[in-house]
Simulated scan of single mutants.
Amino acid sequence: MLDRLQALADRYDKLSELLCDPDVSSDPKRLRELSKEQSDLQGAYDAYTEYKQVSEQFDGAKEMLGEKLDDEMREMVKMELDELGARKTDLEEKVRILLLPKDPNDDKNVIVEIRGAAGGDEAALFAYELYRMYNRYADTQGWRTELMEFTENDVGGFKEVIFMISGKGAYSKLKYESGAHRVQRIPVTESGGRIHTSTSTVAVMPEVEEVDVEIFDKDIRVDTFCSSGAGGQSVNTTKSAVRVFHVPTGIMATCQDGKSQHENKAKALQVLRARISDIQRQAEEAKYAGERKSKVGTGDRSERIRTYNFPQSRVTDHRIGLTMHKLDAVMNGDIEEIVNHLTLADQADHLESETMGA
């Protein structure tokens, strides 16, 4: 680990030299690439610098303990040694995490798809509430959201909604949200006061550049139609809505929220690329992980990553056994604590895998 950290520190110092080079500063593309590389190394570099300082202080205190000291001084050195030892252990854990291979998609924007699954109108209403939750969370992060496609039901819920969240680190924080989200509550339409269980599914996919997934014109079929609102009511008479069908994979994407046919086609292709890339990524993961369920699952009531229990104001993430009694805050976008716990759990899994593979 120390060899890797030293190599990282050497590279950071080299980048500092290069960024001061006039030839580099006069080349915007090269300057941008090197600046990003150094920025990516910054956290590990700072942690390693602190680790070296603490290690030197620890060794110095240990050496002092071997000298002739009076009882009071010896006790002070022992206390300092304990504190430095604890800091050193914490920093070792921190740099181990920082040295884990970074997900290349972490800094990308995301395309989020939410669908009402089991539960009819109640599932669609919950899908809308999840959409609002992620929008409010995006606001707290300084991210921008853009609605791409949606289908409403007659009671104000979403049968399906697709939107983009743009901002640094969006995928790194939202990638754990994919799966079936279960809600338990008494629907407004329930006259008997019984608690119902419904589910909505969430899929979070990193935005894919054209160069990453190339779609050829000969492989797609483009259909245009009039945009429509809730209940199938036509909201315009021009064929601005676009449906793109990718023949080789059978994957389809639709967009009607843009102002023009051209804009809707561009957005539909964005969604299409993300879906194709997601399928390819799942296929690659399956080679190493064996058979695995699809990212979202069937949406059946028994499948869930998280439960939102309204009568008890309780949110439970079943993957990590986390339970919180602050449902109102969570539904208003306060999901940072959940995101942090999921990130730490994922890091712990990677550390364990790395240790077993060492």
Rank of each mutant, 00 (worst) to 15 (best):
T237W: 02
T237V: 14
D70A: 11
V330S: 00
A348Y: 15
V112W: 02
R194W: 12
D349P: 05
W143F: 14
K88D: 06
K102N: 05
D106M: 11
H246S: 15
I195L: 15
K265D: 03
A44Y: 09
S227K: 01
D46S: 10
E284I: 01
E336N: 13
D3E: 11
T224A: 15
F216C: 11
D317C: 07
P104W: 05
L31A: 04
K287I: 01
D21E: 03
M148W: 06
D121Q: 08
E209M: 02
S198A: 09
E285V: 07
P28W: 14
Q42D: 15
R275E: 09
L342Y: 06
R306N: 09
M252Y: 15
K62E: 08
F126E: 01
R144P: 06
Y176P: 05
L130Q: 02
K14Y: 08
K68T: 15
K168F: 00
A274K: 03
I215S: 08
G60Q: 09
C226S: 14
L69M: 12
M331L: 03
R136M: 07
M164Y: 00
E207N: 03
A86R: 09
D212G: 14
P248I: 12
D217L: 00
G157M: 04
M64E: 08
D71R: 09
A230S: 12
A44N: 14
L2N: 13
G66N: 15
Y12K: 15
G250S: 05
T355H: 06
M1W: 08
G66S: 15
M331P: 01
T145R: 02
A127L: 00
D21M: 07
E122R: 11
D278R: 01
K36R: 07
A9Y: 10
I111S: 04
G169R: 05
R11S: 13
Q270W: 01
H246K: 14
E263P: 07
A266W: 00
S240N: 09
M64F: 09
A253I: 10
L125M: 10
S302Y: 06
E129D: 14
I114K: 01
D139Y: 04
R30K: 15
A123Y: 02
Y51Q: 12
R275V: 05
F58D: 07
L31H: 12
L34M: 11
I111Y: 04
G290D: 10
R306C: 04
T49V: 08
Y48N: 12
H350P: 03
I276H: 06
A268C: 02
E149S: 06
R221E: 13
E177R: 07
V77Q: 06
H325L: 02
E214Q: 15
V112G: 03
A268S: 06
